[in-house]
Design a protein around this nucleic acid. Structure first.
Lengths: 207, 207, 207, 207
DNA sequence: AATGAATGAGGATTCATTCAT
DNA sequence: AATGAATGAATCCTCATTCAT
């Protein structure tokens, strides 16, 4: 498996669900859903083409599984971060944004696939993935609403801010390079700051 | 041609470059670059499959042409908007962002394809398209730098702000619906406001 | 499989490497490499077009395999014939030429393809095939050199004689018809005689 | 036009029959009849694809024309050579073979196409070309018969000798390189010698 | 679980040829 | 003569998927 593959799925070295999903993520991330072939995935997973179908019923099922795991992990990270965060909307927003960006940096390919390839899903699988994605955004939306009500955020447009913030943070997956100028921590802080500023909250320069 | 097609390319009714590009945009927008077939495009353009190759040497060439026209138009809009804008960084930023969002709304499919499918390009064609995209971002970057120097923008992180703003505005193409709550004008103002707030400029509530 | 197909490759009746190679030989022999289509070959082999690619990666690979098998068989026949031939250059030449012509008659299509279609090969596959062909000619060249040294062959131009002899014998594949005037044995003797005469050896009329 | 093209057809530089035939010869020689495309030929002739059809009705017609001109020229050379040759079978044979080989060297590509691509012809065009080819061989056959009758050639197999000789000489087109060891003159003499030896005539070492 | 063989549909691209101009 | 646009058929090859083992 190439070094760009995520560790979201890997368990051991034999062909199993985790190995296959890791290979699928790699393939979808590098060639897109339609550009990736089941043969690519099979060879990436070190198994035969036909054996893939013992684990996942179709290529779409594979995408669903990849996206669900990614969204679940992202959601879990945000929830974990919010559990230890204080009660104020400002600190909760910062915690949520930092968790979000942290996931994007740690699992860049998964985050990229999550925003790029969701459009190729349909039916029940799509609903599940869309629901997870919307839940993430809704959490930020709730924080925005709280902070607006409490006066911490003074933006006159709170209704659309969560989407703007999520867009900004998701896009990190499209350009981030591990060798880039900014570290993971810096990226987290940077976007927490931008988010707070966008909401017209009281930003503090921590640099 | 389907109703979702843009008017970026259409000239007359016969099969010509414009008609083909409009059909290609439609197909790429609906199924992605790899998911769209040359047959789709040909039938969308009302011509034969083989005749496509009298106009464009390959599917990739078609994508390049689509993206170049889209980026050129977007760039042209931004430049036109800046010509009539005043000298202050705040008003220039607002003008640029509004032009950017206006393009996204007017040519949603083109904007969506521009951010989604550029990854499938390689070689010289890619360079041209990337250059146009980066130019757009650089214009906003320059305004940010000006406004930071003049004290109009007080963000401590001006270096990365342009990318965040562009990400936020581009993402409109992924969710905008003409029948949605916000009109084009409102979307333009909304994002201009967000951008200014993100930069920690002096926002004015115009609502 | 058509009656003109060789028995060089056939093993059993299911679609396997041998059946496919036999069909490929037929197709290449009848329409040439570029004129033969993979569909032709598939239908000749009684399998599906796509299944061909489970056995051979490309049309060129098929040609390589066909030519390699043909050249290998021809080489093997010549070597076998020389093993039982006496030590004199005259008898060795006759044995080699008769084996060569015998192969051409027994596997006319393979011999025809070997001389006609080798030009459509490139890369490593080509080298392998060219090597086998040149080896065959080199064997005759060695006999010519021996016989010239021993005085059995008095031609003043021994250096180019092997090529002339091989050309003459290969060409049998372009005109031979099983129903023709001359039997296989007669053709073998005929060309052995011509070859010996061309070398200015001591010919004996065996007729 | 590439340097390997023959001068059999070229008249002037504009698109005309000669230019087109020269381009066709090049294309057929390099890629074979089925491997060459009308586009190749058009671009080689410096004219448009469709304009080809103002001169020749089809690709096959082009091949017929190429082959006819080549065979006609070869026949003409042989006849010219025989006009100035003495009455003896030996000298006539030498003159004919030398003319034949001379043509092959001077128009290698045409000679190669003549032996390789004739199989792709059918119908009336084929008959014409085959007739010209057989006439060439028949001339040599007649000389062989004469020489056998007169006792100049003592081969016990005169009936098949002409074909063997023509095969040997034609094959020169498959390996000759202008930069090779042997000059045109040497090749002519060499093959005349081989032919005479094959016929068991009285060879003279002229070297 | 695991695999190699098999397949029908479809992929992009090129073909020889025609036609209106 | 000459051309650009147009086309239907065909090209090689890959696709996701199934099945017997």
């Amino acid at each position: 498996v190439s070094p760009s593959s995520s560790t979201l799925f890997r368990d051991v070295s034999r062909a199993n669900e985790g190995t296959i999903l890791a290979a699928a993520l790699d393939a979808f991330g590098q060639h897109g859903f339609n550009g990736a072939s089941m043969r690519d995935i099979a060879s990436g997973a070190g198994t035969s083409l036909s054996n893939l179908y013992n684990y996942f019923g179709s290529k779409s099922d594979l995408l669903v599984a990849v996206l669900k795991r990614a969204n679940d992990e992202q959601l879990a990270r945000m929830r974990r971060a919010l559990e230890t965060a204080g009660p104020g909307a400002t600190e909760r927003l910062e915690a949520a944004v930092m968790a979000y960006v942290g996931f994007v940096v740690d699992h860049q390919l998964a985050a990229l696939v999550a925003i790029s390839e969701i459009r190729y899903l349909a039916g029940e699988g799509r609903q599940q993935v869309v629901y997870a994605r919307d839940t993430t955004q809704a959490i930020i939306g709730a924080i925005v609403a709280d902070g607006t009500a409490s006066g911490e955020f003074r933006t006159p447009y709170p209704a659309d801010a969560a989407r703007a913030i999520v867009s900004m943070c998701s896009a990190v997956s499209t350009w981030y390079r591990p060798t880039g100028r900014l570290s993971k921590q810096e990226l987290e802080r940077l976007h927490a700051h931008y988010a707070l500023a966008l909401l017209e909250g009281r930003t503090v320069d921590r640099s």
